[in-house]
């Protein structure tokens, strides 16, 4: 009895084996052996900004991004100021991808008449699947801001370098799944000039950002920058909540934030508004991309 079962099993096994063999001969692609490609995570965030701060995304090589950003006045400014809509801080930016991994940008803000220039470089790219393994993406962001306002003390000797502010930032991001992405952004800001001797020139902060994709076109974003020191008079941590709306070539980012500046040294070190007191500003970023240089490999 036992022997019979065994024979039957062997027969069945042989049967499947031969069948499998005939099957594989028609699997021509299988004959070639599969070359497993490295697939990197893409679209960790919809835009190059989470809200105020930089996201891990770059504009693609050869693409120009024209950005218009507005922050209205605070909601608690009341009906006389139309809850903030009467006032606006704004930044206009032109940002360009030199390669897929390296972008540069310039921007002009009416807050303190500032001009900013920055660069963002991809250092590590998260791998979605393939023979290589990389759980996170890492980028470096660096910027210089020039403050354009009249000197506070014109009677003394003022140096051009006193107008400058620097920011170094590491962006560490993880696309957890199709919907959820998270980012950690350790930040260092250096101010060449500060109001008094006991105010630090160097400021350290840590940013936390996240997005949750609700649909193909809509995502919810949140961003928080925590100052790692409390010796900056009046400064509060910047907190922003928003949505990203995407159409074909535009991304609209609508949000509420307590920071009115749109460059790093501004919203990280100079935010004074408090969510508790209602110093909340409505704002938006509009991004419109133009292809300046056609991608390599594309055929007309």
């Amino acid at each position: 009895m036992k022997l019979k079962t065994l024979t039957l099993a062997t027969l069945l096994f042989q049967g499947t084996l031969t069948w499998a063999q005939t099957d594989t001969t028609t699997d021509l692609l299988g004959l070639l052996g599969d070359e497993e490609p490295v697939i990197y995570s893409t679209a960790t965030f919809k835009s190059t900004r989470v809200i105020n701060g930089q996201s891990i995304e770059n504009v693609a090589g050869g693409v120009m991004d024209f950005r218009i950003s507005h922050r209205f006045g605070t909601l608690n400014s009341g009906v006389h100021k139309m809850f903030g809509l009467d006032m606006a801080s704004m930044r206009l930016g032109l940002e360009y991808g030199i390669t897929d991994n390296w972008m540069v940008g310039i921007g002009r803000s009416n807050v303190n008449e500032e001009v900013d220039g920055f660069t963002k470089i991809k250092l590590l790219k998260q791998v979605e699947s393939g023979p290589k393994k990389m759980p996170i993406s890492v980028s470096y962001f660096g910027s210089i801001v020039m403050r354009g306002t009249e000197w506070a003390n014109p009677e003394r000797t003022n140096y051009f370098t006193s107008r400058l502010y620097y920011c170094n930032q590491l962006l560490i991001a993880k696309k957890v799944d199709d919907k959820l992405s998270l980012q950690l952004s350790p930040t260092h800001v250096h101010r060449n000039i500060v109001a008094t001797a006991d105010i630090p020139h160097d400021v350290f902060a840590v940013g936390l950002g996240g997005r949750y994709k609700v649909s193909r076109r809509l995502a919810i974003n949140a961003e928080y920058f925590k100052l790692m020191q409390n010796n900056i008079p009046g400064a509060t941590n910047s907190l922003s909540l928003g949505v990203d709306l995407e159409t074909g070539g535009h991304v609209f980012q609508l949000h509420l934030t307590n920071g009115s500046s749109m460059n790093e040294k501004g919203f990280i070190t100079e935010t004074t508004g408090s969510w508790n007191k209602g110093d909340i500003q409505f704002g938006f970023n509009i991004s419109r991309v133009f292809t300046v240089k056609k991608p390599k490999g594309y055929q007309e």
Partner: peptide, 8 residues
Amino acid sequence: KFEKALMQ
């Protein structure tokens, strides 16, 4: 490869 990176 697409003409526009965003399309891709």
